[in-house]
Design a binder for these strands. Structure first.
Lengths: 338, 338
DNA sequence: ACTTGGCACTTAGGCGTGTTGAGTGCTAAC
DNA sequence: GTTAGCACTCAACACGCCTAAGTGCCAAGT
């Protein structure tokens, strides 16, 4: 009853089950893999594995399927990340390098990842904690309505319409723009509010109320920045794996639409040594994802923002992890260049 | 064999079938509706309706269900648009009025419409044909990389990173910005390229190559504007109506993800007298939507951009049409105000 | 010229039954 | 620690039966 062989059996079960979606039995196992022992021996090993909670039998007498715990062990101790094929790498590079602005890069990234993995791909907007103010623009749209634009060093542009006193004019705006710019240019986004406050305090009384309103708008922008948004693609891939979800894919789609859920999920994922982190089935805090796995990793400066995929627990982990890691690397590189 | 009664029978069949998802038979029909005749008479009417291709029987002897053609007649000649309830109207107004920028408005709109109709909602970015240039901003991100920002009168902000000669400096940019601004401020977006070209032609030789690059970037922005993007929400609602789609919702999700498909679909939809236009089942050019209906209408200036919902052909048309119409009206109003 | 009751006919769907095949657990021998 | 053998279990499938719902049509009624 050697320990290494038991792991080998688990690996075989996971691989076969992922491949065929059918419970795998002892006989089929010895046929498809060179285990060097008979099916009876495998049966003994399987009984052990079941006792440890790594595999389970859907009904009294049929093959076994991996449990969440089994997948976990597989991912942690057995699986080896498969490197991508050369054409795949080329495709990634070609697609990402021809993008122009940030939105475009992220959009291409998710689509690519979705296609590569045949799963749903998600990418979080880059964290701006490390970014700083590149530029501020104030545009008078109509009396009493000013468009505030904040451009950060990472190329992100955010805008917002702010109501202001109706008598505000272009000259005052130009003045304020200049004051704000000299004060906060290059300032890190997290410290923007305090800098703005001190700047407003120094304003001449005539500009106080206008300045206050605009500073408020700017703060709102940098705050909205924080609770980032996510972009996703490949929901159609869920439909293909409809058989892997017990009742329906409804709850999964709901989770995906609730950006809050996905954001919490992504931010909670720690990175392990390999840099790619995995949540399997019920390890996910959200009930609707009990049959789903999430594979994600950080990218960009400090790897704070996440990119990843979501699919059924019955998923080809090695390949998917490789794709996520590769895409994250290229993405980081592209962003560094801008 | 009165014609009005036959229409009444069709209405009853549509309503019952939408309600119960089950083929409706002659007996059930006379029980649930006050038709004043016996089931045998209804059977005769149904045979007629079937001959005309308005209803069909899934198998030899079971109730009838409406065909696409039947739904079409129902929508065109029978259904009356139900006004929304007062609380619903209030909810619409409250939700939309508290939005700030364009993205936010559109995002709230789709979510609202999805919730209101229990279907997938889509909204197209407002057409900018009628919009004109409000402001242009050029920001030097790094040597040889300039962020070009174009702000239009409808509050839309578009950005793009443009590669330029590495020796371009802040002063040159400020100069160009001023020249561009005086030349194209207030110009309609469609005529932006020609105006820019003439502006570039007048530039001193030293600025030619830089000006050329930037003008190119600006043109790209106004062109990208055209082939608008769409926002959607409520895909989880599709899962709920999974029984209404023959095999799977896969093809539908694919169509929704292919923005090109949706854009063509929306732009092809003509408005009828009521202002809400409907595409039923196979009337849709795209095969994946053979079992789906799209209800859409224009909004905003000249009603060029579209907002609508997509769902199974078995859908509550009167209510859904009312919701789409109402949301489009509020949306137009909000946009007018900015 | 419609409408209606009656009746023979069709068929999906539910239900019990039997059969098959894959797979297990256990025991006894190696 | 491994293996062959065997009895046992159970999902899945097929078959046959029956029922309920619904139809089409005909002949009689208004």
């Amino acid at each position: 009853m050697s320990e290494p062989r038991r792991l080998e059996v688990l690996r075989a079960i996971v691989e076969d089950y992922v491949h065929s979606r059918e419970p795998v039995g002892s006989k089929a196992l010895v046929e498809r893999h060179q285990l060097g022992v008979s099916s009876a021996t495998i049966r003994n090993d399987m009984a052990l594995l079941e006792e440890e909670g790594l595999i389970t039998a859907p009904h009294t007498s049929s093959g076994r399927i991996p449990t969440d715990k089994g997948y976990r062990l597989f991912v942690d101790r057995i699986a080896e990340v498969k490197p991508l094929s050369a054409p795949e790498k080329r495709a990634i590079r070609a697609l990402l390098e021809s993008a122009d602005d940030l939105d475009d890069v992220l959009d291409r990234t998710v689509r690519l990842l979705a296609q590569l993995t045949n799963q749903v791909a998600v990418v979080q907007y880059p964290h701006l904690g490390a970014a700083s103010v590149r530029h501020i623009e104030l545009v008078l749209l109509a009396p009493g309505r000013v468009l505030v634009v904040l451009i950060s060093t990472n190329g992100a542009v955010q805008q917002r319409v702010v109501p202001v006193p109706a008598d505000a004019n272009e000259n005052e705006l130009a003045d304020l723009r200049q004051r704000f710019l000299t004060k906060v240019s290059g300032v890190r986004l997290p410290s923007l509010p305090s800098e703005l406050a001190s700047c407003v305090a120094e304003l001449p009384p005539a500009l106080q109320s206008l300045g206050q309103a605009l500073a408020h708008g700017l703060e709102h922008l940098s705050a909205a920045n924080r609770e980032d948004r996510i972009v996703m693609a490949g929901t159609a891939n869920l439909a293909r794996s409809t058989l892997d979800f017990p009742l329906t894919i409804g709850p999964v789609l709901e989770a995906l639409e609730e950006q809050v859920v996905m954001l919490r999920l992504l931010s909670e994922m720690e990175q392990d040594a390999l840099g790619v982190s995995v949540r399997i089935g019920r390890e996910n805090p959200y009930g609707g994802l009990a049959e789903a796995s999430v594979i994600a990793t950080g990218y960009g400066p400090d790897a704070l923002a996440k990119v990843g995929v979501l699919g059924p627990t019955r998923m080809d982990y090695p390949t998917t992890m490789a794709a996520v890691r590769a895409v994250a690397r290229y993405l980081s590189r592209i962003l560094d260049e801008s």
